[in-house]
Write a protein that binds this DNA or RNA. Structure first.
Lengths: 348, 348
DNA sequence: TTGAAAGCGGTACCAT
DNA sequence: ATGGTACCGCTTTCAA
């Protein structure tokens, strides 16, 4: 049988109000406080978080909404983006004695776009299960979020800039950095660039590649070819053929989405006996620290600060929950490139 | 302002008892039920999980204790073991509309062993935050667990066989399978085998290698050399030298702990211009599906069913929580080896 | 089938 | 500084 505050009160010879005060750092005479603490120890008493929550007290749980892409074989816990972000969140959260409630939200594919499941994540607020929420997902089309920020407890959205949102937002400018990558390759002499991307990723990185490429082509006066961005989800088992095709038609550089794709492509290039960067250049995105460079130490990569995004969002949330002043409701983080030896300089 | 059961009762023109009955599938006249549901919809009412929990009702949250190894740079969300297991858990849990509360437990290093932090994970039960618990950790020395199984809600322990525990246990026989690996290499003609392992992993796989190797040596009449098991945590930056050393002293096969170590060693062997398996044989452990074979398609691996362990443990927990009959309190799962082309047959 | 009321384990206000 | 008590939102028993 579990002990209640009344048991403690009896054991300590005080009223339950006093015990409550001790528990909540109210003003209590030191001796009384000691008595109560002794009783708590003796009885091995722990306050019931549920009962506390009833009065609107924090339960020290924050929710993280993690998108699950329906139909994708690889699951949430295999996405480097999500994992790095969770890492960052955990780093902050666990120091503050908060715990993480993972809320999985199914993303349904709808043509080329995603649609959030009707699963209503806001119910976790309504049910009072969480004190705050971090959302890692495509949510630009999510109207609920708009209302939620007024109605409920704090919500931090991680991903792209959420226009007209007005809530807390940690973001990276995906289109911009994608363009920077294209420009970098261009400056090294590459014009026939093929991206292999993954639109079914949880964030918008892949999606923004299209706009970036379009702008890039326009600015550099290159003919825009839609097939120069390949969505792995659309490829069945013919990646090999597609790569071969692209190489034959003059592609000099591959821009790869993540470690999974990079590994796949590197294996294929190896089978083809193509050398990087002598035969073809390669540039990749690292979503989780050095997940690519650990395997291929010579590949030039762009590092997306997912870990930092997680960290910043958790910090922000903690600040809000603990009534510390918040400077910026929106924080922009920037990817950075690490040049290694996988991009060949092509003389023009 | 959030709505309460009383608001619904008023709107529906019934008493709050009736609303409660509707919510909990008590017997209510169909028309009344309809009225109440309509009111619930209209008001956008959600029962407060806290208030429910107060009466001992399930809150549909299960906890997962995840060990964090203190001082290790790589974090929880980078351990393939933990991730695969979480994947399995998530797979089951989310179908049943439960969510996961992650509880991070710091593991302190104490000489060669680990010691659990004084962080008391049982408080999550005492505080009524969770309905059940899955523990992924080294806990063989944990006495609290012993009491906990009687005192609290269901706990499933994943890892090794937990002797004299009496609780729910999903396990793999680590020593046995380690020995099978050694025997396999022996049958292919290898006797000078070096393991590169990681004792600071969250589970006992690495630790059991020592016993396995000892037994193996005894049975096969090989001189047991402690330095033939190398703990990466003890190596500073001289892995390269150590590998070179071992190769020079006649080592014909490396038995590698996980994908991180495998990647590291493969890179070093590449630098040394040593070919696998011509110059040296390699066998690795996959903790997360094909995390190694995706990168090195020719490496022979042993697959530890972490995903399945997660799945089984979650199933078990769900069965218990939902009062379904439970057949086995202990479930043994078995790793399996996939032979590829990284082990050379040595003629004697 | 339904309603009234007690109680779950706390918090917080009002007295003393 | 401490105690008494109303109340948080819900479940459950008892009576009607």
């Amino acid at each position: 049988m579990s002990k209640s505050i009344i048991d403690v009160a009896k054991a300590a010879g005080v009223s339950k109000s006093t015990v409550s005060r001790v528990l909540n750092n109210g003003s209590v005479k030191p001796e009384t406080r000691d008595k109560v603490f002794r009783a708590i120890k003796e009885l091995d008493y722990y306050p019931n978080a549920m009962a506390r929550g009833l009065k609107g007290k924090s339960n020290h749980i924050i929710g993280v909404i993690i998108p699950k892409v329906a139909g994708k074989t690889s699951s949430v816990f295999e996405s480097k983006q999500a994992l790095s972000t969770l890492n960052g969140i955990e780093e902050i959260i666990s120091k503050q004695d908060y715990s993480l409630l993972l809320i999985f939200d199914l993303l349904l594919t709808k043509g080329n776009e995603f649609k959030n499941n009707d699963h209503d994540y806001l119910k976790y607020f309504r049910e009072n299960k969480i004190d705050g929420l971090i959302i890692l997902a495509k949510r630009n089309e999510d109207n609920n979020l708009q209302n939620a920020i007024n109605e409920y407890k704090p919500i931090v959205y991680i991903g792209e800039r959420f226009k007209d949102y007005g809530g807390y937002n940690i973001y990276v400018h995906y289109k911009k950095f994608n363009k920077q990558v294209y420009n970098y390759l261009y400056d090294e002499g590459h014009t026939n660039i093929v991206s292999i991307t993954d639109r079914s990723t949880i964030w918008e990185v892949g999606v923004r590649k299209y706009d970036a490429y379009k702008e890039f082509c326009k600015e550099k006066n290159i003919i825009y070819e839609e097939e120069n961005i390949i969505d792995v989800n659309k490829l069945a088992n013919n990646i090999y053929d597609v790569i071969e095709d692209k190489l034959e038609s003059g592609c000099t550089a591959f821009y790869l989405e993540d470690s999974y794709i990079t590994i796949k492509i590197m294996n294929i290039l190896y089978e083809m006996n193509k050398k990087v960067p002598d035969d073809v250049s390669v540039i990749s995105i690292e979503h989780g620290g050095n997940d690519i460079s650990a395997i291929y130490p010579f590949i030039t990569t762009v590092n997306i600060p997912n870990y930092e995004m997680g960290k910043e969002s958790a910090k922000l949330l903690m600040d809000i929950l603990q009534n510390r002043p918040v400077n910026d409701k929106e924080i922009l983080l920037k990817p950075h490139m690490i040049e290694r030896k996988s991009v060949k300089i092509i003389e023009k």
